[in-house]
Design a protein around this nucleic acid. Structure first.
Lengths: 234, 234
DNA sequence: TGTATTTTATTTGTCGACAAGAATTTCAGT
DNA sequence: ACTGAAATTCTTGTCGACAAATAAAATACA
């Protein structure tokens, strides 16, 4: 008699395939496991996930909609490049979103929001303590995303999360030179921000967020400049 | 003998199908030809456009990514509803984007941008003159979108265009009561905005944009309130 | 040897069909 | 007539296959 297929659980639930591919690809892009410019092959992904090209394609369409991959019609599709030429537009948007989301958090947050925010801040502090640059990047983004969520404006959180994702990619590119002493200041600034949010001091929240954002932008620019000098940039 | 299919050009170019469906559905949604809550049937669209369900599906995925349609897993998909409960988040975002895009336009516009902006303004003035409410809505959105483009920040223009689309839907819902005299003020305000942009007066651009935005928000709120009284709202 | 042209190969876009999930209808039993 | 289960219908999600478009390779020709 012939072998009966005894492979463990080859079946997936019906709608889960696309989400699985989407989430995993998204993580791999943001973590630079797939660096900018990497080619994305549909059939390769199809056999990797043991499914048809159709759900793969749907995941790719969604990623393209968020600007994480670029699709050349009838030709290849690849991980989106980071636009170093128009970096200032990114910084402008980032600073503004830092400010407005923090202000709104000071206005609209609920008690349970503060718990979540403080939890992320604890993780960030731990990452700084451990000098784990990668963890710093991730927990810092999660911290500010939580603040934005407390502001409860889906338009702002949408754009802000997108900006944080893009920033995560940029920082991963250069995190080698990220292990100096400065981040300790960020921990303290985070604590200050939590305090003004809890106090519902909108004006002060705006001021602190602005300073903090400009600190971070300055830090990133320093990183980029240094990397530039070391011929690490494209 | 049976008829032979003599339809002119049943063939489409290879990649054009999805874009065609996407554009048309998008227009129909924004123009409320498909009002919020309308069911979207894939097979129906497939035979309407004489193509397979696959490209239809891709268009729908993209529309869902922009929040224009809602997809219930394994069940139906329908045109997204307008969220009247959290309207203030929409207004907050709209006002801020009016301000920031106008400011950036004052900073970064080029001479040819002004031509485009003025052309849109002329169309808007004509629509007001003709008391064509639908045309007012469309040309007003195009005018501000052109200003945002002159600011050259893709993150801001992306969010702003999305907000303008959503506003277009809202206004279409209530444009019956839109034919009063007030819009003439908007024409003059637009002219003032063009002037400060051309003068590259960033501070004044911010001030004017803010006033203008608040005017528009006020106008919309008045419209909604009146419609509410007339039992037009859901 | 270098260039233009044909051929091959690779990858995407589209198709028709089938199966799973949910809503609706039918039907049995009380 | 009413409730609950079984069957049907209807829509979506997935699949394998094919055709078009492009890139790469091979061939012909000067």
């Amino acid at each position: 008699m012939t072998d009966i297929d005894t492979s463990p659980i080859p079946e997936r639930k019906r709608g889960s395939g696309v989400k699985m591919v989407y989430d995993l690809l998204r993580d791999e892009i943001l973590d630079l496991v797939l660096p900018p410019g990497s080619p994305i092959d549909e059939v390769q992904l199809a056999e990797r996930f043991k499914m048809s090209r159709t759900p793969i394609r749907e995941a790719l369409v969604r990623l393209a909609g968020e600007g994480l991959i670029d699709t050349l019609p009838n030709r290849s599709t690849m991980v989106a490049n980071i636009d170093f030429l128009n970096m200032h537009t990114f910084f402008d948007a980032l600073v503004l979103m830092y400010r407005v989301t923090t202000k709104l958090a000071a206005q609209y947050h609920r008690p349970e929001d503060l718990k979540v925010i403080r939890a992320h801040q604890a993780e960030f502090a731990a990452a700084v303590q451990a000098q784990d640059a990668l963890a710093m990047i991730a927990t810092n983004a999660a911290f500010h995303s939580a603040i934005a969520e407390a502001g409860r404006n889906p338009y702002f959180t949408g754009l802000f999360n997108r900006l944080l994702d893009e920033g995560r990619r940029m920082l991963r590119l250069y995190y080698q030179s990220y292990d100096d002493r400065l981040p300790q200041r960020f921990v303290e600034e985070h604590d200050d921000m939590i305090a003004v949010i809890a106090k519902r001091d909108v004006e002060e929240a705006d001021r602190l967020a602005r300073l903090h954002a400009e600190q971070i932008v300055h830090q990133i620019q320093k990183l980029l400049a240094r990397a530039d000098r070391l011929d690490m940039a494209l």
